[in-house]
């Protein structure tokens, strides 16, 4: 029965654009400096009124609602999985190993050795894209710039880790592996595409945008 919704304010944190020069204008027609780097300053997406009971009314009632299953959970971003010491992306909730740290800064690590779970393998991804050959999952997360076109590798790894770590995450491990295999077979991360069986083609950029839509920060 559709119970009236109680609202969870954690559910839709305001997505605040980071610093950005806002071209203030007094009168509408005064000429602007044209530096609006952040067109949308703050956004508040409508909370679910209908459908799945995703809101846990813990914030106020100090208790988990009786149907507190969290089967609409969003996943962690590649950034969160890259820095497990920060606390979000917890690799022990996944069957994979990030590998050991190459240069141990004070409690931080920004370079990992090759002794973690490899990107290509039976329980991870199958394919031959040169950008990821010979690298571990964690090393792919740390690829930068054109080493990982459109950050496709980082996002597909984050999606796979979320599929194991987040109960109720939108995609299963098999879904994520299927997406990778399809793109790898159709040209891979640089200039490849996803070929749907409805004849519809998606660019790698659109696939990354889709994965972002399943992550908490981009909701």
């Amino acid at each position: 029965m559709a119970t009236e919704k109680d609202i969870e304010n954690k559910e839709n944190q305001i997505v605040e654009s980071d610093s950005g020069v806002v071209a203030g204008i007094e009168s509408r027609r005064r000429l602007l400096k044209g530096a609006a780097l952040t067109p949308v300053l703050l956004s508040l997406t409508s909370r679910p009124v209908l459908g799945a009971e995703c809101t846990i009314s813990g914030f106020m009632s100090g208790n988990v609602s009786d149907h507190g299953h969290d089967d609409c959970a969003c996943g962690f971003t590649p950034g969160a999985w890259k820095t497990p010491y920060v606390g979000d992306g917890n690799w022990n909730h996944t069957p994979f190993d990030p590998g050991t740290c190459k240069n141990q800064g004070q409690g931080q690590c920004n370079n990992y050795n090759g002794d973690g779970t490899p990107f290509f393998g039976p329980s991870t991804f199958s394919g031959s894209d040169p950008h990821y050959a010979g690298k571990t999952l964690m090393q792919v997360l740390w690829l930068s710039g054109n080493q990982d076109p459109h950050q496709f590798g980082a996002h597909i790894v984050a999606a796979l880790l979320n599929a194991y770590a987040i109960p109720g995450y939108g995609m299963s491990p098999a879904d994520v592996q299927a997406i990778y295999a399809n793109v790898d077979a159709n040209g891979g991360a640089a200039g490849g595409y996803y070929m749907g069986n409805n004849g519809k083609m998606l660019t790698v950029e659109q696939v990354v945008a889709f994965i972002q839509s399943t992550l908490c920060a981009y909701q």
Binding site: T45, L50, A52, C72, C74, G170, S213
Partner: peptide
């Protein structure tokens, strides 16, 4: 099916 952002079924 559930929408990943709007949580509608």
């Amino acid at each position: 099916l559930r929408h990943v952002r709007r949580k509608t079924v």
